[in-house]
Simulated scan of single mutants.
Amino acid sequence: MLNGNILTPDGWYHGTLHFAERVARIEGQPQSPDSNGDDYLLPGFIDLHVHGGGGRDVMQGQGAIEVITRQHARHGTTSLLATTMTAPREHIEAALRDLGASMQQRSPHAARVLGVHLEGPFINSGKLGAQPNFARTALWDELQAYHELAPIRVLTVAPEISGHLELIQKVVAQGIRVQLGHTLGSYEDGVAALQHGATGFTHLYNAMSPLHHREPGIVGAALAHAEFSELIPDLLHVHPGAIRAAMRAIPKLFCVTDSTAAAGMPDGDYQLGSHTVTKCLGGVRLPDGTLAGSTLTMDVALRNLVLIGLSLSDASNRLSRNPADFLGLSDRGRLAPGSWADILVVDRHLRLRAVYVEGERIDLADA
């Protein structure tokens, strides 16, 4: 059991949280944490966009995912989506084959892999960002082959490419969430994709057609119509003012790290798919200066959101409950009886004191 200020779906309670692998019960009374100096008990972070960490990249396959999930667990991420890079089909299949095998059982002291975020290859070659140039038009048979190797939970597509609207409908019918990203699409393309079943946007503002008052672009479609979208809150990818604008417009906007192998590592060169990227001055870039993912961890994301003016409960929801809701998970991202015991103990300076993944306490020694 743990004592402190517990963030529940019904607000703050001061009391005791009882748990094993799942939360058993919560004892206490509704009370603002401002009335005492005890620690905060928050739901574990859920990161739906993770390329790497600890020097390893998801596309490296065998052995990499264990390093990545342990690295992020030490920073409060209790579950995540392993995110691929655009690559030749055989490279994606090799990575997914290894991921499918590794997902059969969670590694000790590691985050749970909930599935795969397939970021590409079905994107626009004119808006690659840091994706390698292996973009191509979606093929249903190719996607099905990927899904059989490892469960695809989120798919990023460019909606303006011929045939992709029809693909979105078929993908959504299988229970896969579709996000729009790496796209030169118009506002109209974005609205059409939402009408065909897309429900999210990949790293909002980045690698998509921007908002202009006469050409609203994909960003305009998101701000005008979306319920969900992901966003990278490292304060490098998106200005704090743009973050706050998106949060006012998109009710369940959630935050991701888009982390790379450089997360948790010193400055230097690392792999991002087939690219070599450089970590320097807190960012990760291609040789031409293009941002190439991030070094962000979710505990830093929490502090950044509070820094720009969000309440702790709002910041927590955007790192836990909202991404769980996006995936349709009712037993993660919240502290309530029956939910998985994914628990963070956070001090009054918003530093992690303890992390529990499905009831297992994680060693934070290297965090």
Rank of each mutant, 00 (worst) to 15 (best):
E90K: 15
S294E: 09
A192K: 13
L114T: 02
A249D: 00
A262H: 13
T290H: 14
L7V: 05
A354M: 05
L350C: 08
A242R: 00
M103C: 08
A64W: 11
Q104P: 09
F201Y: 13
S313G: 00
R70A: 13
T83G: 03
P30M: 03
S313H: 06
R56E: 14
L194D: 03
A207E: 08
R89P: 04
Y356R: 05
V178H: 09
S102K: 09
V219A: 09
I243K: 03
G115P: 06
M298P: 01
N36H: 11
A315T: 01
H225N: 13
L180A: 04
T78G: 04
A262Q: 10
F201H: 04
M85V: 11
I92H: 04
K127A: 08
R214T: 11
S229C: 15
Q271F: 12
Q174N: 14
L167K: 03
R318H: 06
L329P: 00
F201S: 02
A110T: 02
S209I: 06
S313R: 07
E93Q: 15
N133Q: 14
C255G: 01
D299S: 00
Y205L: 13
C280M: 13
V219G: 06
A145L: 12
H212M: 08
P30R: 13
F326Q: 01
D299E: 01
N304Y: 09
I46E: 01
D57Y: 12
V345T: 10
G37T: 15
G53R: 11
D189G: 05
L81W: 07
Q144K: 13
G4M: 02
P121T: 10
W12N: 06
L319N: 06
T295I: 14
T69A: 15
L312W: 02
V345M: 08
A354F: 03
Q71Y: 11
Q31C: 12
F19L: 05
G76K: 04
R334N: 07
L204K: 00
S229G: 14
A111T: 11
A245F: 12
T8Q: 07
L364T: 09
F228T: 07
A145P: 01
T77W: 03
L344H: 07
L272S: 00
I46W: 06
T183P: 01
A110E: 03
A261C: 12
E360A: 10
N3R: 14
T257K: 08
D98L: 00
L96P: 04
P251N: 12
R303N: 12
R22M: 14
G217L: 08
A262F: 09
S209R: 13
L286P: 01
L184K: 11
R136A: 00
K279M: 14
H72G: 10
A245G: 02
S102M: 11
G241R: 12
A263F: 05
D331S: 14
G328D: 03
K170R: 15
G129A: 04
L155W: 03
Y205T: 10
Q144R: 10
G52L: 06
V171Q: 04
G44E: 11
G293M: 05
W340Q: 12
H117R: 10
H72C: 12
G220D: 01
T156R: 00
Q271L: 15
T69F: 05
R303Q: 15
K127L: 08
